[in-house]
Design a protein around this nucleic acid. Structure first.
Lengths: 249, 249
DNA sequence: AAGTGGTCTAGACCACTTC
DNA sequence: AAGTGGTCTAGACCACTTG
């Protein structure tokens, strides 16, 4: 192990976040890439010149995502199998990120944009009145040349205020449009996973073989303060590994 | 809100865990059941007679599972939509728990027990030699009278030491057998989710309709210290809601 | 200005594992 | 006995939201 760590200075702000980013980098491809354990909390605190609390906060963040495990009397163990996972479905909310992480260029086509009136279920999920206007955006998403997702997004019309939604470029990720034009950032989603063979239209768009089933995600995306802003139905082919971590705390 | 909280004494141990359990109880069905927010950290600390650190540790645990959100300058907001979810697939590792939470009695039948020799992939996942012996247990799982899961478990033969695996009651949850006879508790699993139509044998066991697809979970269960102990293939019908939380931290 | 959560310090003791 | 992570205290200051 190296004798000294470099800790960038940002005016003393967010120190534990910097520490956890630094440690993750070293775990993935740095000086701890071949280690089974991290140095002790006291040692890390001394080397980085911060208090043990800062180290513990940083380690807690890393532990929450499953990359390390802390054992009393033993130390901080690196969970190499989990560090090595490339795409964690439970940590990424946006399929474009998943596609990019897999080494492909994400883009979309076959866009169909329309207004609909909220049915009972969607209205309840999005906390809007039944019958209120929804922007509906259907599209096909491709990784490079391979179609891999068909998605249908439902957004309350009122979110966009004075912006004319028909002027926007809906081939962009909806997350980006929400951010840019509504100032809304989706941080959480409740996802219901099921399996389906889907209808002929969607199957043909995705070029799936006769025997191949699809994963259907019925999601509601939330911003800060538990505010629901979007419902999505997403049909996934088997192009991706849908890997997730399940953990008892 | 009440003027006083009761905090049980257990010799001063694990105080933050007690606090988080207490708070979760009050959020779900107690004095915060109709609240949008929790009292401030300082107030909670005073009322419970502990330091603010203890409160913050407790709140961190609750936040990690998605039930609250902490916002600077505002307070600790309760995510009611998430509290109200009955079955969280990302927090439970064991289908028997999910079945019980849904209000059904879990049991299994059609048990087929055998020895196999590890293929390359399973050997790698379980960190055993290719060709080494595996106990394989196939069974059908029912919720009450309804078949809902077909599962195939692969366990290294060596785990059971001198215990003759054919003497055990494999209709019990495998988690319980591992605990009782091997002293192993599975705390984490890496799950690969896919959709499948499965073969005729499994479809007939699960009584699925011709058009119905199944969810397939390919899981590796880990004990403490990242030790892999079991691989499972589990075929799920649509009997359950497979709800999970996806979150950016 | 007041109140909230977020961060950080310095120090203490406990529980567990290993030697 | 020594070293590890887990818990807890008391106090301080910062960043953000609200009035």
């Amino acid at each position: 192990m190296a004798d000294h760590y470099e800790l960038p200075h940002f005016g003393g702000k967010l120190m534990s976040a910097q520490v956890s980013a630094l440690l993750m980098k070293e775990i993935k491809q740095g000086i701890f890439a071949n280690s089974e354990k991290l140095p002790s909390e006291v040692e890390l605190a001394e080397r980085l010149g911060v208090s043990r609390t800062v180290i513990r906060d940083a380690l807690s963040d890393i532990e929450r995502e499953g990359f390390i495990e802390r054992v009393r009397g033993i130390g901080t163990v690196i969970c190499r199998d989990i560090v090595n996972l490339t795409n964690r479905f439970d940590l990424k909310l946006e399929y474009n990120e998943l596609i990019e992480n897999s080494g492909y260029r994400p883009h979309s086509d076959s866009i169909r944009l329309r207004l609909e009136y909220a049915d009972e279920k969607t209205a309840e999920l999005l906390c809007v009145d039944e019958g209120s206007r929804l922007i509906v955006c259907e599209k096909r998403v491709l990784a490079g040349q391979t179609p891999c997702i068909y998605s249908i997004d439902y957004l309350p019309y009122e979110l966009f205020g004075k912006v004319d939604y028909t002027d926007l470029d809906w081939s962009q990720p909806v997350f980006d449009l929400l951010d840019k034009y509504c100032g809304l950032i989706i941080t959480t989603s409740i996802s219901k996973v099921s399996a389906t063979n889907a209808d002929e239209f969607i199957r043909s768009k995705l070029n799936v073989q006769p025997k191949q089933a699809l994963i259907l995600l019925d999601e509601v995306g939330y911003c800060k303060l538990s505010r629901p802003v979007m419902r999505s139905l997403e049909f996934y082919t088997d192009f991706f590994d849908f890997t997730m971590l399940r953990k008892k705390f």
